Amino acid sequence: MTNSALFVGLVTLDLIYLADSPPQNNQKLVATDYTVAAGGPATNAAVTFSHLGNHATVLTVLGSHPMTQLILSDLANYQVAIIDLESSQDTPPPVSSIIVTQSTGERAVISINAVKNQGNITSIPANILQNTDIILIDGHQMAVSKIIAETAKIQNIPVVIDGGSWKPGFEEILPFVDYAICSANFYPPNCQNQEDVFTYLQGFHIPHIAITQGEKPIQYRSCGNIGIVNVPKIQPVDTLGAGDVFHGSFCHYILQSSFQQSLELASNIASGSCKYFGTRRWMEN
Rank of each mutant, 00 (worst) to 15 (best):
Q202E: 13
V197F: 01
Q194S: 12
I206S: 03
I209D: 01
F250A: 13
H252Q: 07
V245S: 02
I226P: 03
K233E: 08
R221N: 02
K233C: 06
S222W: 01
F204K: 04
D238Q: 10
C251E: 10
S257P: 03
Q202N: 14
I254M: 14
V231S: 02
P232K: 08
Y220M: 00
Y220S: 00
T239Q: 14
Q213M: 10
P217Y: 07
I218K: 06
G241D: 04
N230Y: 02
Q213P: 03
I228W: 06
E195K: 14
I218A: 07
G243L: 09
S249C: 02
H247W: 08
P217L: 12
A242N: 11
V231M: 03
I218E: 06
S258R: 08
S257Q: 12
P217S: 15
Y200F: 10
I228H: 11
G243M: 09
T199H: 15
K216W: 03
I254R: 07
P217D: 15
Q219W: 01
Q261A: 15
Q213R: 15
H208I: 04
H247D: 07
F204P: 00
Q260T: 08
N193W: 01
L240M: 12
H247A: 02
T239S: 14
H205C: 00
D244W: 07
R221V: 06
Q235G: 06
V245P: 03
E195F: 07
S222E: 07
Q260D: 11
Q261K: 14
F198H: 01
F250C: 04
Q260H: 10
T239E: 09
I206N: 02
I254Q: 09
P207T: 04
G203F: 06
R221L: 12
V237P: 04
Q260L: 09
C223K: 15
P236N: 02
G248P: 12
T239C: 04
F250V: 04
S222A: 08
I254S: 11
V237N: 10
I211Y: 09
I218R: 06
C223S: 11
A210E: 14
G224D: 05
L240I: 11
T239V: 14
H205Q: 09
A210N: 08
S249N: 06
D238F: 00
Y200L: 04
G248E: 15
Q256H: 13
P236D: 10
D238N: 02
F250D: 14
Q235A: 06
I226H: 05
Q202K: 13
Q235F: 04
H247V: 08
L240F: 08
E215R: 13
G241I: 04
H205R: 02
N225T: 15
V237D: 01
F259W: 07
Q256S: 15
I234T: 00
Q260K: 13
P207Q: 06
Q219A: 03
P207S: 03
N225W: 12
D238S: 07
Q256E: 15
G243A: 09
T199Q: 06
G243S: 10
Q219M: 00
